[in-house]
Design a protein around this nucleic acid. Structure first.
Length: 280
DNA sequence: ATGACCGGCACCGCCGGA
């Protein structure tokens, strides 16, 4: 396999270890969060960073600053709401915006290929509440997204789907599972929709490893939720089974959530390795 | 108990977020 990531200098048993770091971050306005994103890119140098909630049209995306940081960008923008992007060290190929065949003015999905790896940046609908019209949209959207991933996996066996899923998959992903029981982001139907994605042959990278209890990726802006660790884990990096076999780590970086004017979400990142011979 | 904090937009409050 060829990886567009870092080539580590140390060989193991005569084999060269290649790694590819893939990250996701709901930035809640790229305009406001640009300094945080540039700092994070500088510190982590991910091969690909999936962004959500740009809240700007593609023409207003701060492309020059991202380019100056050494990153390419593929953008699906929209005024004021939604908007997703893929930032990458190497240019992506075969970009696809949206879910083919699912008409939707909301920009929530963008895909491209990096080396042999297909990467999708996704911002799943929030749903608002179980009685909201938006909840019905959320479930319809998840059904269409499931079918899209099924088709994508047939063409791209090495697939990463990273983003804000707006689903806390299990009670351990919720700071107060009793209070949140049956609420939006935690309802049985939403968890079933998330599980249906995994059933396609995808793994939640975070749960491939031992993790600290009470690990979350989002905290409400209100009531000092971050300091009190009142959070949810709703940002996920799913990896197709063959790629998950090469996943060596997955972590949430709470650092940026503690900065001035933070996003309400923290970045999540995973590292994928391949120790096969470079000539294979 | 209620509302609370943000960002965007377009105004002087509202919507959407989760």
């Amino acid at each position: 396999m060829r990886w567009p990531g870092k080539k580590h200098s140390n060989d193991i048993d005569g084999k060269t270890l290649m790694t590819m770091k893939i990250a996701t971050w709901n930035v809640n306005s790229i305009k406001v969060r640009l300094p945080h994103v540039l700092d994070w890119l500088d510190g982590h140098r991910p091969a690909v960073l999936c962004l959500q909630e740009l809240k700007c049209e593609a023409g207003n995306f701060p492309l020059e600053a991202v380019t100056a940081a050494g990153y390419h960008a593929l953008i699906a923008g929209q005024k004021a709401y939604n908007g997703v992007a893929l930032l990458s060290l190497q240019p992506g190929s075969d970009p696809v915006i949206g879910i083919p065949g699912f008409e939707d003015p909301q920009q929530r999905v963008i895909a491209a290929t990096y080396g042999e790896v297909r990467v999708i940046s996704v911002y799943c609908p929030n749903g608002e509440s179980l009685t909201s019209e938006k909840y019905g949209y959320k479930l319809r959207w998840f059904a269409a997204f499931r079918d899209y991933l099924e088709a994508t996996l047939m063409r791209y066996p090495l697939l990463v789907v990273a983003g804000d899923y707006n689903v806390a998959p299990e009670d351990r992903d919720v700071y107060d599972p009793v209070a949140w029981k049956g609420e939006v982001l935690c309802s049985d139907a939403e968890r079933a929709a998330f599980a249906a994605l995994l059933k396609l042959g995808l793994k939640d990278s975070f749960r491939l490893f031992e993790q600290a209890d009470k690990s979350y990726s989002w905290w409400h802006y209100r009531v000092n939720a971050f300091k009190r660790n009142m959070g949810l884990r709703i940002d996920h990096i799913l990896a197709s089974d063959p790629l998950a076999l090469t996943c060596s780590s997955c972590a949430i970086d709470k650092g940026p959530r503690a900065l001035e004017r933070p996003s309400d979400h923290a970045p999540v990142f995973a590292e994928f390795s391949d120790s096969s011979s470079p000539n294979s």
